[in-house]
Amino acid sequence: MSLLLMTGALAAGADPVEVSDSVGPSAIHPLLFCLLLFLGCTIIGFFATLGGIGGGVIFTPLFMGFTPIDSYIIRTTGLFVAMAGTLVASRPFLYKGIANIRLLLFAALPYTLFAVVGALLAGHIDRTMGAEGEAFIRGALGLVVIGFGGLFIVFGGRTEYPRAGKVNGLAKKVELPVPYWEESLEEVVRYKLSRVARGLLILALVGTISGLFGIGAGGAVVPVFNLVMLAPLKVAATSSTVMISLGDTAAVWPYILGGGMFPLVAVPCMAGMLLGAHVGARVMLRIKAGFVRWIIIALMIAAGIRLIVQALGML
C-alpha cells in the first residue's frame, strides 16, 4: 500500500506521457526520494519473494506505469536490481549442487546473446524513435507483462518432477542433467531432459524481452526449463536464477554505458530489493503465501493495462 501511495504521489508530480520543457522544483528532498525508493523496493522485493518470482519483473512495469521517470532509466535500474538479487541468491543453489551449472551454461548462451541484442535495440529505439519508440516500449511491455501474469496463472500447473518421454540425444551425449540431493526426499534425484532445441529457441526470445524491457524474466525462464525441457522444478527455479545473473549482466552494460544508470536511483532500489527479498525468504518459511501470487498477478495486469493506455495516448 505504501508503494502505491508513493507511486501515486510520484505520478501526480508529472505525467510520463508529457515531458515538460523546463525543470521545475520538486516537492521532495533527494534524501526523502531515496528513502521512498528504498521503502517501495523493500515492499516489492518482499512480495516478489513470497510470490516466488524476481523483483525486476514487478519493478519495471510498476515504475514505468506509475512514475514520471524516463523509461530508459527505469529499465536500466530494473535490470540492475534483477541482476543484483540473483548475484546474492545464486551461491547456496550452486554450493548445494541444485542449480545445474551445465544446463545453465548451455541455456545462457542464447539467453545472454539475445539479452544484449534486446539492450542494443532499446538504446537504438531511445536515440532514434522519440515518442513513437517510447509508445512502442510501453505498449509492448504492457502486453508482455499481461502475458507474464497469464503465465503465472497457467504456471500453477507446474510439475515438481516431470518425466521426459523422449530423451534429447544431445543432452544425453554431453551429460547435461546432473543428479542432485533432494533434502525433502532424502535421496538423489536423477532426471532427463527433453526438447532442448525448442527450449533454447524460446530462451532466445525471453532474453530479447529481458534486455529490451529491462526485466529479469525469471518468471518466463522457469516454465521453459520445467515445462518445455522437463527439468525438475527445483533445478528449473535455481538454474534460472543463476542464468539471469549472467544474461542481465551482459544486458545491463549497454544501458550503463549509454548513461541510463544514476546512483541516486539504483543504490536505494538495489538495497531495498535485497532487504525485501531477504525478509521475504524468512517469512515464506512460516506462512502460507498462496494469496500473494494473486496480488502480484493483479498488480502486473493493472500495470500492463496502464502501460498500454499510456502508449495509446502517445500515438
Binding site: L10, P16, E18, V23, H29, P68, G258, G259
Partner: peptide
C-alpha cells in the same frame, strides 16, 4: 558529482538521461 536536487528535478519532469546529465 551530481547536483542531487537537479537530478531529482529532471527525473521528476520525465526528462531523458542525456538531458538529466547536462542539468
Amino acid at each position: 558529482y551530481f547536483d542531487n536536487q537537479a537530478l531529482l528535478d529532471g527525473l521528476w519532469a520525465g526528462h531523458r538521461a542525456p538531458t538529466i546529465w547536462a542539468e
